[in-house]
Amino acid sequence: MFSGLKGKLSGVLIIALIVLLIFISAASLFLGTANIGYVDVFRILLHHIPGLGDQISIDGIPDSAVTIIMKLRLTRVILALLVGAGLSAVGSTMQCLFRNPMAEPGLLGISSGAGLGATIAIFLGLNTTVFGMGATAISAFIGAIITILIVYNISRTGPKISPTVLILAGTAISFMNSAIIQLLMIFRRDRMDYIMLWTMGSFTTSGWNKILILIPFLVAGLSILLLYARQLNVISTGEETAQSLGIEVEKVKRILLAVCSLITAACVSTSGIIGFVGLIIPHVFRLIVGPDQRILLPYSIIGGAAFLVICDTLARVIASPAEIPVGAITAVFGSPFFIALLIRSKRSVM
């Protein structure tokens, strides 16, 4: 669809964006409370690449620095990158699927369901671990899945799903979940901070186990979303039209809804509720590269990853050594930027 210059241009732009993402990730590794020189950071990283590791010595670098880079900063950067990519891809897909500019991963109650699940686990003081995942994360995942199943069944008439009912039911359940979270918080004042940090999103408890669990969800999920991009373009112009063009709309809707729910549940249960990424990043890139999902989705994935790495770096650097919830950063820095973009695009239309 996008041919000629536009096609080439978007190719160049995406490479530029990938380079930017690598640069941002690297910069994030250098920044932090502990002062570690960038040469040391490189040596530590290279040392841990299999095969190459033996050539690079890390003698003379304190063990604490190695731990900070490998166990703390690197896992945080990777986790932020994965979650940003996932949430942004889900937002982009849902906006198309429901033909609704307000659609985002939290819309269907998935995030709040995960929040409630996590809060219940924290409330009960559960701290068992299964497959390296903490009880909080598992409980969050279960909460997310239960919520989406409830919302899905409310909005279903036979095999058909009404997007309007789906969104309204999701919003209603979101409010209910949030209310229960706040009630539970009042009853467990001693754990209020912990619940708060969770409901506003944070990568403080990152770790390789979380990354390893998140990767299969994202690789499989994002591949499916990319495969359906062309069909999604047609659906975004109207469901009846898509149907008359031979697309099995209800089937595609069910598949994409399931994939989006799983990606969101996986992301939110590892990092807490991080709003804004899924809503704004797809809009930003839609204004730049247009609505073709085959082009927009890769941009959203890389853009979302870069955005969340930046936000998380700010979250741990700004008030260092204290932590700011990353969800607050995404909103505070994202909103003005987005509003500026909206005003600019409004001007160009008028």
Binding site: F2, R99, S236, G290, D292
Partner: peptide, 20 residues
Amino acid sequence: STNIDFDFTVEDIVMMGRTP
């Protein structure tokens, strides 16, 4: 009636006719 919310070009929309 047709109501398209997204900013596709005319050519994009006609190309969608090739979907089947």
